[in-house]
Design a protein around this nucleic acid. Structure first.
Ligand SMILES: [Zn+2]
Ligand SMILES: [Zn+2]
Ligand SMILES: [Zn+2]
Ligand SMILES: [Zn+2]
Lengths: 138, 138
DNA sequence: CTTGAACCTCTAGTCACTAGAGCTTGTAGA
DNA sequence: TCTACAAGCTCTAGTGACTAGAGGTTCAAG
């Protein structure tokens, strides 16, 4: 059994974040000492590690909730889990696509001004004022 | 002179968002009719187009504030503008880098389970439970 | 002059935390 | 056993960039 601070150190999840996860129902309510302090065991550690890893991979709290629900029922079909993973992957790919367009446009814009001119003649400001100057949609 | 709804149509910025920008000081307080409704002119339209375009490129409200400040002083050096653009580009590149790592990992994980099994044996859940199964850091 | 779409302000909700106030508990050293 | 004080507790509010809704007012077409 260890304290919330110990759990925090082991999982690299900040203490207030652990309490937040508990409040959101991701983490079961921890056992308490007689003085009302939370105490965790191996199970709590594993669950928090799961949450941490899923968050690192960009899954939403809601998605993680569903995944945990599934984990708690070993006999259920895992279809929902793959669905969630695939939809998360699609999200990530969409974000990458959009960011690549932004990168192109921002690179182009940045290269057109060395920062030694005056605001009035600045290409950065002109480019922001007029999307027509952009080389493609974004 | 046109209404907030007109401005919204022309810029594709939603009405409550326009009011929000005004509240945040990005948009000067609009003139009002005797009945207290906002009325805009060409200047308002141009400024909102600028904001919209900058937001589309991912600049923060704070960054856009600085850019507008600069735009309002045509004789100032534009160094700050390029700085902001370059830092935004760096942000975008960092995000792409991170997302590409996630994409790799999520692709790998998704491919290891067809969703026809049972939760207990699901690779997706196993992979989330154990970062050691990941092929690299992310 | 009537109708109703569009406008107004204000408050609260979103997501995933993070910060701070003000209080209580656990634990290590004297 | 006593005493510090680090670490814990709860609760509220703030972050960014909006979005939704309530409840009321104004504009403009017919
Ligand atoms: Zn410039
Ligand atoms: Zn553009
Ligand atoms: Zn599976
Ligand atoms: Zn991993």
């Amino acid at each position: 059994m260890f304290s919330i601070g110990e759990l925090s150190k082991r999982t690299k999840v900040k203490v207030p974040t652990i309490r937040y996860y508990e409040q959101m129902g991701l983490l079961a309510e921890a056992e308490r000492t007689s003085g009302n302090q939370r105490r965790y065991d191996k199970k709590g550690l594993e669950r928090l590690s799961f949450i941490r890893h899923a968050r690192d991979l960009g899954f939403s709290i809601e998605a993680i909730s569903s995944l945990i629900e599934l984990q708690d029922h070993p006999d259920r079909s895992c279809e929902a889990a793959t669905d969630i993973a695939i939809s998360q992957l699609a999200d990530v790919r969409a974000k990458i696509k959009r960011l690549k367009l932004l990168e192109k446009e921002l690179t182009r814009i940045s290269e057109c001004c060395d920062g030694h001119g005056v605001s009035e003649d600045c290409y950065v400001l002109a480019a922001l004022a007029d999307h027509e100057l952009c080389s493609r949609e974004h």
